[in-house]
Write a protein that binds this DNA or RNA. Structure first.
Length: 843
RNA sequence: GCCAGAGUGAUGAAAUUGGCAAACAUGCACGACUCAAAAUCGUGUGCCGAAAGGCUUGUGGGUUCAACUCCCACCUCUGGCACCA
């Protein structure tokens, strides 16, 4: 008998599925069935090709999609390419070729790889963010942002990557390093295009509540937005008409504010320059701060530095006392007002600073055993409590005093966010041109819609200029245009959009990828949105997922989409680590190449293994020996079911099928149908596969058992119905093998049924309904009752389901084993859990 | 420091509402087949013990007839944020 030939089977079915441009998986919005939109985070088609991490998420979404189709849903499951970005551009610079050619080549390879895995994508909807027909609409959306005042130019301090030679968004920088290349990031001031994401901060925060997302991602977005409610309070500068505004969330502690701290680049310093007595040391400190990197500043968290502005004081508006002004780098110019009132008694940072420079500490909230009578506080008290040392507010709970003190000093309630506006321009070539024309007379003029897309022109040199311009600036014929408003001489914006632009709305383009009139027809958008399930890595928690939500909300506000949020449910697949438990990386040499695995074991084994490894969302190490188990499993499935045809042909007429007698197998079958279905819906693919193995092991066992009449033909065929149901359950996980065996079973229906007529489904499992289970069959008539004595398991008995407590007690107490253990002791109490256990308590 | 998540055999892991800890798979050991090896199949495999039995889910305590599961404290690891006033 032929052994399991995965290569032959997989390429055979991939060819069949490919017919008519994958018509089999093409979804139409006019279908009568209810819809499901199952989306993968589309890949950046890198030169390294597909990673086993991609396969994990894509296998999960494919299983879900195939399952939903069999359940009768109209499933949209598309794929495309997020192809703008630096790696392609850098490679192109190195190889002196056009990035488009690099991208085309990579896409070709990715396509081949994805198809070799048998993923059921609707390839007719394939998109590519670098296709002018696609980025025409990315530019169109930018214009909508511009027209709403949400895209603006500003001179701002930016993160400049010294290696990529471009600015980066705050979200792309971590620990002062470029998130992409790891090189150092420098701060400088540049004129940049900004997107006003802060205008949506509240809605981005509030609407998280309605999403079915992992708690972790929700938390990360909340922290990133960093909403904080407080008040702005003014401190008059003594002997001057000037005032310093501070932001505080603890207005209740105002009486304890014993000094003020300004960020080193606060504007007051230059305004009152003449009155500062220690100008030299102040300037020195300011210079030193500028040179300090973010990393150095963080490592200085515990030890505080600073300089007093001698000659200047402010008046505490509550106590009316004069207090000194300091500057310190622990106060950030970019947050709040760039100035804080320091309350060392109730803030850890202020406390550390006060200790460093011997500044007075005045406790104004008592609590936690601290009454304010202690000679010296050992640390700041940041908890709740009762007001002290605060005049008329004494004895009030501090949260009530907080509101009243704001009123008392005529402060303004204020909400601050950590979220900053999105720095949107990049000084690189391989991105969407920003569709703006700069006219000396008219200013920034949007490119008229009819002129979209603004095509990315060919340049001789992709090398970044290292300046505030992209390589596009060198093409005079492209840059110089007539102003669309006044017709006068004007220049195109030469910066391009960041990598994230294209992925902010790609899920909408899939709905109507060929539309030339709109980004997507409204009728299609209304039918398909929102996305029911979005699967991808957690690394986009505050990048793509925040940016896309922002754009989506803008599109919602202008009526271009009908839902507030794009991604209803989000699932993060965990990292697949190397077999050493470390993150896979080329430098560690622990990278697994999916192509090699497919070649050796087949796509079905790879899919099955990655799903069997453990819970989808967990990080888990790749075990080189692990995949063999799944390969063996599929080999046994092949053997048992393909063998049938041979035996059947050779059997004498009249020989009956194996009755697969046992009600136990029937029960297991129906239990498995139920479990596999609910496990798929809950993303418990590992236990679904384990359930399939248990069922299959039993089927195999039943097959080799002798016939009930004792004839002992261990090779009698298995009941067809069992094998059919098993193959349907296996299909979403291992589609090639299940389909091959299914078609063999169908063609072996024998001469009584003409082939191809049996189901009208072209013999394709995709079109077969998911099996139904019978709840009545799952119920057991007998149950195993556990007998415990003092909570310890001592015996098990088989009893009729629904047995009464009295009966159960009688049986349990009559067991010899139990009698021995009990001796002459009497049961004090008996706990009975129906159909589960009986616990005899002696103690 | 703050936030979130996780600690179960040699390994990946499993365990409806608190109710048989270790399903399923890998690895390993032994056996069958083979001249032999691979592949395949079978048996065994948490720990201690000859057995009876006892012990076991990061540590310590608690609630309960009964705790991997609930509560308290602590330890360790992973991810995120990091002087955000």
């Amino acid at each position: 008998m032929a052994t399991y030939n995965h290569k032959k089977i997989e390429s055979k079915w991939q060819k069949i599925w490919q017919k008519n441009d994958f018509e089999i998986w093409h979804a139409d919005y006019r279908a009568k069935e209810p819809k499901k939109y199952v989306l993968d985070m589309f890949p950046y088609p890198s030169g390294d090709g597909l990673h086993v991490g991609h396969v994990e998420g894509y296998a999960a979404s494919d299983i879900l999609s195939r399952y939903y189709r069999m359940r009768g849903f109209n499933v949209l499951h598309p794929m495309g390419w997020d192809a703008f970005g630096l790696p392609a551009e850098n490679y192109a610079i190195k190889m002196k070729t056009h990035p488009r050619l690099v991208v085309e080549k990579n896409i070709k390879n990715f396509t081949k790889q994805l198809r070799s895995l048998g993923f059921s994508y609707d390839w007719q909807r394939e998109i590519n963010t670098t296709d002018p027909e696609y980025y025409k609409w990315t530019q169109w959306i930018f214009l909508q942002l511009f027209n709403k005042g949400l895209a603006y130019e500003a001179e701002v301090p930016v993160n400049w990557c010294l290696s990529c030679k471009t600015v980066l968004a705050n979200e792309e920088v971590s620990n002062d390093k470029c998130g992409r290349c790891g090189a150092a990031v420098e701060r400088k001031k540049l004129n940049q295009w900004m997107l006003k994401i802060t205008a949506y901060a509240d809605r981005l925060l509030e609407d998280l509540a309605d999403l079915n997302w992992p708690e972790k991602v929700v938390e990360m977005q909340k922290n990133w937005i960093g909403r904080s409610e407080g008040a702005e309070i003014e401190f008059p500068v003594a002997d001057s008409g000037l005032k310093v505004k501070v932001f505080t969330t603890r207005a209740d502690t105002l009486a304890g504010a014993t000094y003020l701290v300004l960020a080193p680049d606060h504007s007051l310093i230059s305004l009152l320059d003449a009155r500062i007595r220690n100008k030299n040391s102040v300037n020195e400190y300011i210079e030193r701060t500028k040179r300090k990197s973010e990393l150095e500043r963080i490592s200085d968290i515990k030890s505080k530095t600073g300089v007093e502005l001698q000659g200047l004081n402010v008046i505490n508006p509550f106590t009316r006392k004069e207090i000194p002004i300091w500057i310190s780098d622990y106060v950030l110019a970019s947050y709040g007002t760039g100035a804080v009132m320091a309350v060392p008694a109730h803030d850890d940072r202020d406390f550390a600073f006060a200790k460093e420079f011997n500044l007075p500490v005045i406790q104004v909230v008592s609590g936690d055993g601290l009454s304010g009578q202690e000679k010296e506080m050992k640390e700041a008290y940041t908890g709740e409590g009762i007001m002290i040392n605060s005049g008329e507010f004494n004895n009030l709970p501090n949260h009530i005093a907080r509101e009243r003190i704001v009123e008392f000093v005529k402060g303004d309630k204020k909400v601050n966010y950590k979220l900053r506006d999105w720095i949107f321009s990049r000084q690189r070539y391989w991105g969407e041109p920003i569709p703006i024309i700069k006219c000396e007379k008219c200013g920034n003029v949007p490119v008229p819609e009819k002129d979209l897309p603004v095509l990315l022109p060919k340049v001789k040199n992709y090398q970044p200029t290292g300046e505030a311009e992209s390589p596009l600036a060198a093409i005079k014929s492209w840059v110089n245009v007539a102003c669309p408003v006044c017709g006068g001489p004007a220049k195109r914006e030469t910066n391009t959009m960041p990598q994230w632009a294209g992925s902010c709305w790609y899920y909408l383009r899939y709905l109507d990828s060929l539309n030339k009139e709109a980004m997507a027809a409204s009728v299609k958008e209304k039918y398909w949105m929102p996305i029911d399930t979005y699967i991808g890595g957690v690394e986009h928690a505050v990048l793509h997922l925040l940016y896309a939500r922002f754009w989506h909300k803008v599109l919602f506000d202008i009526g271009a989409v009908s839902t507030k949020e794009p991604f209803q449910k989000l699932v993060n697949q965990g990292l697949i680590l190397g077999s050493d438990g470390q993150k896979m990386s080329k430098s560690r040499g622990n990278v697994i190449n999916p192509d090699a695995i497919i070649k050796e074991f087949g796509a079905d084994s790879l899919r099955l293994y990655e799903m069997f490894m453990g819970p989808l969302e967990d990080a888990k190490p790749w075990q080189p020996e692990g995949i063999i188990g799944l390969y063996r499993f599929l080999g046994r499935v092949w053997k048992l079911i393909s063998q049938k045809s041979k035996v059947k042909k050779s059997l004498l007429a009249g020989k009956q099928e194996k009755p697969d007698n046992s009600a136990a197998l029937d029960r297991l079958l129906h239990k498995t149908i139920k479990k596999v279905g609910s496990d798929i819906e809950n993303f418990h693919f590992n236990t679904a596969i384990s359930a399939l193995m248990i069922l299959f092991n039993e089927m195999e066992h039943a097959k080799s058992a002798p016939l009930p009449d004792g004839s002992g033909n261990a090779n009698a065929p298995m009941r067809k119905e069992y094998m059919e149901i098993f193959l349907k359950l296996l299909f979403p996980f291992a589609p090639h093998l299940a389909q091959e065996l299914w078609s063999r079973l169908q063609s072996n229906r024998g001469s009584s049924v003409k082939s191809g007529q049996q189901s009208g489904n072209d013999g394709l499992l995709d079109k077969e309904p998911w099996p139904q289970y019978d709840e009545a069959l799952i119920l057991e008539s007998e149950v195993e009752l556990l007998i415990q004595v003092d909570g310890k398991l001592r015996d098990k008995i088989l009893v009729a389901k629904g047995i009464s407590q009295a009966e159960a007690e009688k049986i349990a107490l009559s067991q010899t084993k139990i009698k021995e253990i009990m001796g002459d002791k009497k049961a004090k109490k008996i706990i009975f859990v129906p159909d589960r256990l009986i616990n005899i308590v002696l103690l």
